[in-house]
Amino acid sequence: MSKQIVIELSVNNHPGVMSHICGLFVRRVYNVEGIACMPVNDGSRSRIWLLVNADERLDQMVKQMDKLQDVHDVKRHDGGHEVFGKMADFF
């Protein structure tokens, strides 16, 4: 299995934001292995965690996500993040 990386996004919370983000991956034929999303800031924003396989296109993906109007912040966790480990209990 290739190395997996977690991307943490702070975004506006409204219908369509997830489509904008996932669309960036879909149209580059780049699979998103895992997604977690919860509202924060009383629901005005959401935090999204994406689990993706390491790929040479990742730098470009991070820049593209950063460019989206509804994305406030993009963080890369190259060593992974415990959020998906904890979620694994439900699968």
Binding site: P15, G16, G23, R27, L68, Q69
Partner: peptide, 9 residues
Amino acid sequence: IPITKHNFL
């Protein structure tokens, strides 16, 4: 979505 800089509903 994929053909705009941004879009609104």
